[in-house]
């Protein structure tokens, strides 16, 4: 008699299951395991239940205070760079040439910052913005504007925001450019015949066509900026004080500096859930907006 179901098919899924298990599930479970225990070294672990989570989510405790401060800094940073990079990226994409050799030249120039490794970007700006030998820092100070990212929190913030804008606006611009290129000429010709103003063309033709790529750009930039570590670590090391200590930097301090594995593991899990939750909200809101238009 024929078997309607062939259980042997499970074997075909096995390699993927193994890879995912070893690359994601096992490490994640290890972290979960740490987050419910305490250790004083010697590989001795003690059960702590949800203790670390309670401490972490209570802003009145030392750990909770650190976490929420860093979290607000992260959110502020993401909000700042999104509000700069998205409009700027759109503006750059709109002013890019549509044909000729200049297209290739512009694309290469725009792609350059994206190809530089994070820590190199950090190092470049760390030197570039120094008040004594950095071109930017020196010029700004000579113009009479006090600027010192190692001593002044505002300077430090300006530096990392500008650095991120320099590094990542290209990504938004390139994505938007791809969206713009998908618009047939007939749309522009029809708009001219309809007597549409520049703004009306942007509002009714270009923006709707860029809508999908903008969703991707916002999601990518949000996730990336929310997890930012390398550049501020290289430039400011989280300082001055704790003014540029983001969650990821704090996490490393906690896990590798203080060797508080339990606290760090709980922080990792919560950090991960926050990113997932915010991305889900972004995605849902933006796809709802999309659906609402049709």
């Amino acid at each position: 008699m024929d078997k309607p179901v062939n259980q042997g098919a499970w074997l075909l899924v096995l390699p993927v299951v193994l890879i995912v298990a070893f690359s994601a599930i096992v490490p994640l479970m290890t972290v979960v395991n740490y987050s419910v225990q305490d250790t004083f070294g010697n590989n001795q672990f003690f059960w702590n239940g949800i203790g670390w989570y309670q401490e972490l989510l209570d802003p009145t405790t030392e750990l909770g205070g650190r976490f929420f401060d860093a979290l607000w800094r992260n959110l502020l940073f993401s909000a700042l760079i999104l509000s700069i990079e998205v409009p700027l990226g759109i503006a750059v994409a709109l002013s890019m040439p549509r044909e000729g050799w200049r297209v290739a030249a512009t694309l290469v120039i725009l792609a350059l910052p994206l190809l530089i490794p994070w820590n190199v970007v950090g190092t470049i700006w760390q030197i570039f913005a120094r008040e004594d030998i950095g071109l930017l820092g020196w010029v700004v100070n000579r113009l009479g504007i006090p600027y010192n990212y190692t001593a002044d929190p505002l300077s430090a913030w300006v530096t990392i925001v500008v650095m991120d804008v320099w590094h990542w606006t290209s990504l938004v611009a390139l994505l938007c450019y791809a969206g713009l290129r998908s618009i047939p000429d007939a749309f522009y010709q029809a708009a001219r015949i309809d007597g549409a103003s520049r703004w009306a063309i942007f509002r009714n033709i270009q923006l709707p066509k860029m809508h999908r790529v903008l969703l991707i750009a916002v999601l990518l930039r949000f996730m990336d900026s929310f997890m930012i570590y390398t550049e501020p670590f290289v430039v400011t090391g989280g300082g001055p004080g704790n003014s540029t200590t983001f969650v990821s930097i704090d996490l490393v301090k906690l896990a590798l500096g203080q060797f508080d594995l339990g606290k760090a593991a709980a922080l990792s899990i919560v950090y991960n859930l926050v990113i997932l939750a915010v991305c889900w909200v972004f995605y849902t809101v933006m796809t709802r907006m999309d659906a609402g238009r049709s």
Partner: peptide, 12 residues
């Protein structure tokens, strides 16, 4: 006025 090969409609 001109009507094109591919219909041009403002989607939104």
């Amino acid at each position: 006025a001109q009507v094109f090969q591919f219909p041009v409609v403002y989607d939104t």
